[in-house]
Nucleic acid binder design. Structure first.
Lengths: 216, 216
DNA sequence: CATTGTGAACTCATTCACAGCG
DNA sequence: CGCTGTGAATGAGTTCACAATG
């Protein structure tokens, strides 16, 4: 097996996609799936599917394909989503509230266990789903107490770096950043940025130039 | 100049980042900026900045750098964000409502001009910012009437493909898809997917494996 | 004999290194 | 002299093509 080489970032993204498709297929009653079929469903190349899986082991049966249920388990294990993760959300505006209530997060084992803001009007209030909004200054103690492992930033750009620093100081080394800014963090801290406005810029460019047929 | 070669997708994403930094720099009073400085701010390689810009022309002055204001204008022109774009949002749940009210979209010239849902309870109601919620079945006529060029999908996964088909039929060929599903569209239609749960999966993987220091 | 697993070939993207120029 | 612009070199990621095999 080709295990232990360096693994492309895009491979991880695709594993997540494969997993979603496998869930749907299991729901539809499929027991096995070929790399061709899975690739078609995910709009990628069949060899890509096999190579992606090949980084982590040999999960298929030649001449048959992959066991739908088994492969889900393997991907969950690889991605470390075969367990629950506690999230702390900072910035309880419209977007933060929407995330707190977002069903898909809970379903996938990402639990929003704490909400923070710096607005005195909001602190102490009860956010959706009965979560009390805490003062941002309580972040460090709450992280310890509630075992928060992933921080979510839904503040305006101006506050993002300050919040990121608090997370880093509290030893949270995974951040999902929805603010339209790139935050600076030490190498030990992992960041994923979700910036709608950048994505809209890309769409504007693409539609004007009519290139890049499909997006991952 | 190296114009008209094929342009990497990542280049477009970075142009959007450069633009945001340039806005901040102008606000801070800078008149010019070197590729080194801009690169440092955006956490990329200086040669990358020059190469990215080089795809589209020669915007700098040797020995000096780039004019902060001028470069903003050029990037706006390249990305086609030197104009306004009309958005139609489908699925007025928590996330859809949050987007309707999102200041950053308007500021950047992305106007939410219509809201759609299929829930009879919601249709006819007034969404945030005084926008009337329309029946999803009115989509095609509203697209024509309001000149909607970008469709935004904030429905559950189960409805996403149906909505995408409506957009395609209405000749909207740019879609921002927030649902946790990959939609199938013809090549003429551009799609950008924003899927938080995939991003959280990636974070889970990264934090478990402690690799990939920084993300773009 | 259909389908996996994977080295080799290829394509795409980034970085280097330096010539070109204000 | 400093900084841009870019061909050449390197590196990363994808696809091909086929041997391996249940």
């Amino acid at each position: 097996m080709q295990k232990s080489t360096h693994i492309p970032k895009a491979t991880i993204t695709r594993l997540s996609l494969y997993y979603r498709q496998l869930e749907l297929m299991e729901f539809d009653g499929y027991r096995t799936v070929s790399s061709d079929k899975l690739a078609w469903l995910c709009q990628v190349n069949p060899a890509q599917v096999r190579k992606d899986l090949g980084y982590f082991g040999e999960f298929g049966v030649r001449g048959v394909g992959y066991d739908v249920k088994e492969l889900q388990e393997q991907i969950k294990r690889i991605l470390a989503i075969n367990r629950e993760w506690n999230l702390g959300i900072v910035g309880i505006g419209k977007l933060g509230s929407a995330l707190l209530q977002h069903r898909n997060l809970q379903v996938r084992g990402f639990n929003c266990v704490a909400a923070f803001d710096n607005d005195p009007e909001k602190i102490g209030e009860t956010a959706p789903l009965g979560i009390r909004i805490r003062d941002i200054e309580e972040l460090k103690t709450a992280v310890k107490e509630l075992n928060i492992e992933i921080g979510v930033i839904t503040t305006p750009a101006s506050a993002a770096q300050y919040v990121a620093d608090l997370f880093v100081e509290a030893d949270v080394n995974a951040i999902l950043n929805f603010s339209p800014t790139r935050i600076q963090v030490p190498d030990c801290c992992m960041v994923e940025n979700i910036d709608f406005t950048v994505r809209l810029d890309i769409l504007a460019y693409k539609v004007r130039n009519e290139i890049y047929a499909k997006a991952i």
